[in-house]
């Protein structure tokens, strides 16, 4: 079957990643002396703990992928990207806890909200470009952050304390069904990545790249660029919403920090570390980001954030193409990288 083997060769890297990640809990289990059966029963100590870390990384990676589709592929730098994630997280929490809706209805609601938000951003898309879009998107997201944080909303969102006590459906309960949750998050990440790769190689994706490179020219080629940006925005917001929903199901508390600018910057950092517009960089970057943060926090405690911050700044300064971008170039070209980064952040207004 040619189509099958094509699929395998085309996606070899991510499929190897999938298998390795799938086996990892069992290998770690063996190291700590738990049999595969113990791991499957979620009774391993270290393996269960690392599955949790893995879930967090997968969620971050999905979120970062959705950011890279807009920023790295289409050239839209949104500072309101965290809103897609946060709306999904809070909606999941509120729908499960306060409204007590069945799970499928929650999912439907989250998807609907993702599309509505993308369309909301799309109202401003044809009107503002470059850095103006960045600021408008920040404004939109800030409004949501303020609503979440307001004391009037305390019964729904938990305001600054966060939303607690969300009843996660038993079949994916992150405590008792950790391994299953881990596999589901992994599958979402791998599926998103494969889908994104296909998208970028599709006619629609190629036009998104053209928009990033020179939007006016793309228009004159005959593309209604706004429509393409809206398509990218909808795909991105749905992806970020899936990440946000997984987050709400996994975390015991949905903290309002997922709605603020800092969380968008996290996605930006991840993509910068991994390599802007490379897609796989979002996954590599998410691992790097979370593992560095985790390790330093272990040894340095709270002061770690200062160190991690400095590490990222220095890293981006000297490796502007990110890990994957630099590997593809097969050389470090700092200055050219900076030029490209700057032009991307400025946008082609």
């Amino acid at each position: 079957m040619t189509t099958n083997s094509n699929f395998l060769t085309r996606n070899r890297g991510i499929l190897i990643f999938f298998v390795v990640m799938l086996l990892a809990p069992f290998l770690i289990g063996l190291l700590e002396g738990s049999s595969p059966a113990v791991v499957l029963a979620n009774e391993g100590g270290l393996s269960k703990f690392l599955e949790g870390l893995g879930i967090e990384i997968f969620i971050l990676a999905i979120f970062a992928l959705s950011f890279d589709l807009l920023f790295g592929i289409t050239g839209l730098l949104s500072f309101g990207h965290a809103m897609f994630f946060a709306v999904a997280a809070y909606l999941t929490g509120i729908a499960l806890k306060t409204l007590q809706l069945p799970f499928w209805q929650v999912t439907l609601l989250v998807l609907l909200a993702a599309i509505v938000q993308a369309l909301l951003f799309s109202i401003v898309l044809p009107r503002v470009k470059g850095i103006t879009f960045t600021l408008v998107s920040l404004g939109l997201a800030s409004v949501f952050h303020i609503i979440v944080m307001s004391s009037d909303m305390i019964n729904l969102t938990g305001a600054d304390v966060g939303l607690q006590g969300v009843p996660t459906p038993a079949f994916i309960n992150p405590a008792s069904e950790r391994f299953r949750f881990y596999v589901i998050a992994l599958i979402f990440l791998v599926a998103t990545y494969i889908f994104y790769r296909r998208f970028v190689a599709s006619p629609t994706g190629r036009v998104c790249v053209a928009i990033r490179e020179n939007e006016d020219r793309a228009k004159m080629l005959g593309y209604s660029t706004t429509t393409f940006k809206v398509v990218a925005m909808i795909i991105s917001s749905i992806t970020a919403s899936i990440a946000g929903m997984l987050h709400a199901l996994y975390q015991p508390i949905i903290s309002p920090t997922v709605a603020d600018l800092g969380f968008t910057v996290t996605a930006l950092l991840i993509v910068l570390i991994g390599g802007v517009g490379t897609l796989s960089g979002a996954i590599v970057g998410a691992f790097g980001f979370r593992l560095l943060d985790f390790t330093l926090r272990r040894f340095l405690g709270e002061s770690a954030s200062f160190v991690t911050g400095s590490v990222y700044v220095i890293f981006v300064l000297f490796v502007p193409y990110g890990i994957i971008g630099t590997l593809r170039l097969e050389k470090l070209s700092t200055r050219a990288g900076w030029k490209e980064l700057f032009s991307r952040i400025r946008g082609n207004a």
């Binding site: 296909r198 190689a201 599709s202 006619p203 629609t204 190629r206 036009v207 005959g222 593309y223």
Partner: peptide, 22 residues
Amino acid sequence: ENIRLASQAMEDKNFRFLMDTT
């Protein structure tokens, strides 16, 4: 790719986002 994008614009398949451009 410059020329290809210019040719592609005349197609009506530009929103098939799972199709392989090649």
